[in-house]
């Protein structure tokens, strides 16, 4: 133990300029490192990935079977329920992943690991959000590919390459929005028990009050209103459309809300707005913990 720990102290001048302003490179460096930690954890504890891939496939197979014999006009346009369901499962899977992203942050907070990040001169605490979102996006990518392959094998057909690209963009917006909100909860709620309670209350009702399992036309009017306001629907309907129509256009109407038709572009714009709004809404929380 003889090396120098500490470079010979530079003369301290109290009036010296403090820090160069935080730049994008610093933000990138910290985001990359935080994301890397999540992937190392996944590598050493792969059960989350396995469960994350198996679960949506079970949704697909079991729900597909459950509604297999539903009346033909149930879906309005004559497509099989299996075809209908794929988009719902893809979106719900990405949504659940993003929704649960607050849990590890809450545990970090409870164990004191979060303090390690908070005492560090982070360029922006949004790097914590960005790392979680990037991680969940990658997970969703893997899950989505698995779902597309399996439902393709079940006879649903495959989306086009451009459709696939747009699907991922849609999922990215949704994941960013929901991850931000989930982390906001993780920063606010007293502990993981409370967080889990909130996640449980939110998770399935949002699924059932969306167009994931049944089309708007099948719902009573009040539920139509709820489902058409549900952000999940704004991801599900475009993806379903991209699945069914290889020759899609931005102006295609994908969601017939009680208050009017929403185009593909409109849905994507809505999701982008949702993402920006979520990020904006948690900014004071990140600032507040600035101490």
């Amino acid at each position: 133990m003889s090396q120098s720990v500490f470079s010979p102290a530079t003369p301290v001048n109290p009036s010296q300029p403090t820090l160069p302003p935080a730049n994008l490179l610093d933000f990138g460096q910290e985001t990359f490192a935080l994301t890397r930690r999540l992937f190392i954890q996944l590598k050493r504890r792969p059960s989350t990935l396995v469960a994350g891939v198996v679960q949506p496939l079970m949704w697909l197979i079991l729900f597909g079977a459950l509604f297999q014999n539903a009346p033909q006009d149930f879906l309005g346009n004559s497509l099989a329920y299996g075809q209908f369901l794929g988009a719902g499962v893809i979106v719900f899977t990405a949504f659940s992943g993003a929704l649960n992203s607050g849990l590890p942050v809450m545990f970090d907070r409870e164990f004191g690991f979060l303090n390690r990040l908070l005492v560090a001169p982070l360029a922006s605490r949004f790097s914590i959000v960005a790392a979680s979102a990037l991680f969940i996006m990658t997970m969703s990518l893997v899950q989505t590919v698995a779902i597309i392959v399996v439902s393709g094998l079940l006879g649903t057909g495959f989306p086009t390459l451009s459709g696939l690209g747009l699907m991922f963009l849609i999922l990215a917006f949704l994941v960013i929005a929901v991850t931000a909100l989930s982390l906001g909860l993780a920063f606010t709620l007293p502990g993981h028990i409370e967080l889990i309670a909130v996640l449980l209350v939110v998770n399935l009702p949002l699924l059932f009050a969306s167009t994931a399992l049944a089309p708007l036309s099948f719902m009573p009017t009040w539920l139509q209103v709820v489902a058409a306001a549900n952000p999940l629907s704004y991801a599900i309907e475009p993806i379903r459309h991209l699945y069914l129509y290889p020759h899609w256009h931005w102006s295609d109407i994908v969601l017939q809300a009680p208050w009017g038709n929403v185009s593909l572009l409109g849905c994507i714009g809505g999701l982008l707005g949702f993402a920006l709004l979520s990020l904006l809404s948690i900014q004071p929380l990140l600032k507040r913990s600035l101490g």
Binding site: E30, A33, L34, F113, R116, L117, P121
Partner: peptide, 30 residues
């Protein structure tokens, strides 16, 4: 930037190696 803080309860990530933790720390301090 000026401070190094060692908290009372040791908060480390048991799934990382010591080196990986320090690599994370290095990135957090740029």
């Amino acid at each position: 930037q000026k401070l190094g803080y060692v908290a009372q309860e040791v908060a480390l990530d048991k799934l990382l190696t010591g080196r990986e933790l320090l690599e994370l720390q290095a990135a957090l301090y740029h």
